[in-house]
Design a binder for these strands. Structure first.
Length: 233
DNA sequence: AACCGCGTCAACCGCCTAAAC
DNA sequence: CGTTTAGGCGGTTGACGCGGT
């Protein structure tokens, strides 16, 4: 199917936003919200396409945006998450409150990529088919990543897991998450598909809410580099 | 002072997907 | 069930600033 470009209308403005346009957009969204981006510029009186308005709001004008330099912690988190998720900038941004996918993408391409490369923590070129000992999240979510760092990272964290790569886990990512989130909080170890196992790298007993539990498992995945098998209860 | 190269970042482009029809 | 549409995403571009020569 061929779709008309979103800015097909002649006369719509492009390029940098002015302070006045920002003001119009912010006050309109504060007053009416942004239910329909396509209709928004018309209603707000902006000569911009809806996509442009959405982008400006999401990447710059949103009140919860954290501006300024990335902290060391944030940069390390980006490197780790990129190793796990690949170029899933929006997924990475979701784990870094106040940061946008565009900002993260920029900071990655400008300096973190080099740093990750020099640390040996990142691959030069991601590949589609990852020969990982464990199924990586990015593989499961059809993202791009290579196996080497996943395998290395996993092996280094999981002392009991060495040797030839086990068979991929026969479970999709959604199933894994629903199983993980329903596990008893007393779970302390995970298995890999070659029957080796490792202790959970974090203590789960003080996790109280579903959101915290999701963050807990995200941290585990970052540590082990993929989807390990879950114990049965 | 002028030029050049490089890094940074806002914004655009084009594709994909899910929802609506 | 096929088509259309809007939103969302990742890749890319281009303007700008700054430091070095």
């Amino acid at each position: 199917m061929v779709r008309a470009p979103c800015c097909e209308s002649i006369g719509l403005k492009k390029g940098p936003w002015t302070a006045e346009e920002d003001q119009i957009l912010v006050s309109y969204i504060q007053q009416y919200g942004h239910g329909n981006w396509r209709a928004l510029p018309r209603h707000a009186g902006l000569l911009r396409c809806g996509k442009s308005c959405r982008l400006r709001w999401m990447n710059y004008l949103r009140p919860d945006i954290k501006r300024g330099n990335f902290t060391e912690e944030e940069e390390n988190a980006i490197i780790s998450l990129h190793g796990l998720l690949g170029n899933k900038w929006s997924a990475i941004a979701a784990k870094l409150p106040g940061r946008t996918d565009n900002e993260i993408k920029n900071v990655w391409h400008t300096h973190l990529k080099k740093r990750a490369k020099s640390n040996g923590a990142e691959r030069e070129e991601p590949v589609k088919e990852a020969a990982t000992p464990w199924r990586s999240c990015s593989e499961l979510s059809s993202s791009t990543t290579t196996g080497s760092s996943t395998a290395t990272r996993g092996a280094s964290v999981n002392e009991g897991h060495t040797g030839s790569p086990p068979e991929p886990l026969g479970m999709d990512e959604d199933d894994w998450w629903s199983e993980a989130l329903s596990l008893d909080s007393s779970v302390t170890s995970l298995e890999f598909s070659d029957s080796s196992s490792c202790l959970l790298p974090f203590d789960r007993t003080d996790v109280s809410s579903g959101d915290e539990d999701e963050d807990f498992w995200m941290r585990v995945l970052m540590e082990v580099g993929g989807l390990p098998e879950l114990p049965n209860f």
